[in-house]
């Protein structure tokens, strides 16, 4: 099975463990990910903060290249890139004049035929059904699924999960045997946009998130966004300063969690690259559950 793939800059650099875990899981389950040839940066926050046309053109070039390469579905694990891509697709398909202009700027023709998948959609469509036959361990830990901003907002364009208290990651983690907790900061912003330029704000925003999760007994935060991850992982001193205490709850990617359940080597999943050490271990061996056929009569009465 072949799927288009856009790693994005973070996954090639500061968040390479995310890429490593996506690749390791895909490889284990026989899914081939084909990168867009000669892809470029999506422009991230900087482009749309400073220039709208630039912010649409940079993603559009990638989408056009993907179409040229004959790809129909594109997996974009980075939530920020996914958001830029989806917003670009939406804007260009709803604004003819802008669509023409952007095609002229990039010197290529973007048609709008691609289906863009974020990492959760990728898991839901291509991975979740294969888990049962391939799982070696249950992630028998209390985890807090953290969605951040970019996966769920703006809901009208992304149309993914519900606006508040989303559940899709929780469903995946429960499938892996984890106890995913109900908590308050699932979709609050971690402040990653200011990670470098305004670190004090990050200490506060991310600090609240990590504190609430650990207060409710989470043994790990599970994320699907490299911005959130590097922020929550690398900026821990600023958070500890805000909270006035040291919190060592690790932050893992959902693909790393899947990798652990599949029994993939921790190093191969990039778990050694985290700043906050990921100590999670002693997983319960997974035993495939027998399928119990429900008594249909009882079901009807219910």
């Amino acid at each position: 099975m072949k799927l288009g793939f856009y790693p994005g800059c973070s996954l090639e650099g500061a968040s390479r463990e995310y890429n490593e875990s996506v690749q390791a899981v895909a490889e284990k389950l026989g899914i081939e990910l084909v990168s867009i040839p000669d892809w470029n940066c999506c422009g991230a926050t900087a482009a749309h903060n400073l220039d709208k046309e630039l912010s649409l053109s940079l993603p559009a070039r990638n989408l056009a290249l993907a179409e040229e390469a004959g790809l129909t579905e594109l997996v974009v694990p980075c939530a920020a890139c996914y958001s830029r891509f989806t917003v670009t697709q939406h804007e260009l398909l709803h604004d003819n004049a802008m669509h023409k202009k952007v095609n002229e700027i990039i010197g290529k023709e973007y048609k709008g035929t691609l289906r863009i998948l974020n990492v959760i959609q990728f898991i839901e469509e291509y991975i979740i059904d294969k888990l049962e036959d391939n799982m070696k361990f249950e992630i028998n830990k209390k985890v807090a699924c953290y969605y951040g901003c970019l996966l769920v907002r703006p809901n009208k364009i992304l149309n993914f999960d519900r606006t508040e208290d989303p559940q899709t990651m929780d469903v995946v983690m429960k499938k892996l045997g984890a106890d995913s907790i109900d908590w308050a900061f699932k979709t609050e912003c971690c402040g990653a946009g200011f990670s470098v330029s305004f670190t004090e704000a990050v200490g506060r925003l991310s600090g609240k998130i990590i504190e609430d999760a650990s207060h409710r007994g989470a043994e790990a935060l599970v994320v699907a966004c490299p911005m959130c991850h590097s922020n929550l992982d690398m900026r821990r001193p600023a958070m500890d300063k805000y909270n006035g205490k040291k919190i060592d709850t690790p932050v893992i990617y959902i693909t790393q969690a899947i990798g652990l359940a599949l029994g993939i080597d921790r190093k191969k999943l990039g778990l050694n690259r985290h700043f906050v050490p990921v100590k999670l271990d002693n997983f319960k061996p997974y035993v495939k559950k027998e399928v119990v056929v429900e008594n249909t009569q009882i079901m009807e009465e219910i």
Partner: peptide, 22 residues
């Protein structure tokens, strides 16, 4: 200032290489 500088530095990097050079 810092925020604008960061955005500019970011775009500068992309403009030169096509990708972010952290």
């Amino acid at each position: 200032k810092n925020i604008i500088r960061f955005h500019k530095a970011f775009l500068n990097s992309i403009q030169k290489t096509g990708r972010l050079y952290e």
